[in-house]
Amino acid sequence: MTTKLVVGLDGHESGKRAMAHAVKLAKLIGECEVLAVYVIEWSPYSFQTAEENAQRHKRREEETGLAKSRIIEPALAELKQAGLSARGIVKHGDVADTINRIAKEEGAEQIVVCRSSEGGIASRIFGSSTSNLVMGASVPVTVVS
């Protein structure tokens, strides 16, 4: 049976480190599929103007398209080059919840993420996406520094 690994990307250097670790793990496992996931942070409880609402679908498509071309495709190319089977997933939502949901839906064995690139007061109060994921994940999480 193929083992699935979910790797969370953030579009930064730290995400690349997480991916490098996932590649290493995948090679050790052998028959393994890597799911490269990028989540666009989005809350259904934000406030928007009527015009923004009317444009929302268009923007969502644009955001997904950009994430695919700038983050997911280069990552997939890298994974394929390493001789691994790989898929890319782009979703909107809360980063921690969405990565966990994908891992559950896909039956992944493990999630690999980097230490959060966020900082500041918000993450001190509410916790970063990574710490939220570690607290709430339903499969083991590896955090790469």
Binding site: W42, P44, F47, Q48, A50, N53, R56, K91, G93, T98
Partner: peptide
């Protein structure tokens, strides 16, 4: 409160957003 919202539709205008936008008018 989003209990009937498909998580795969996240990123589209939510019921909450439509309600608050209309209310702000």
């Amino acid at each position: 409160s989003g209990k009937y919202s498909d998580p795969n539709d996240a990123g589209e205008v939510s019921h909450f957003q439509a309600l608050t936008t209309a209310l702000s008018g």
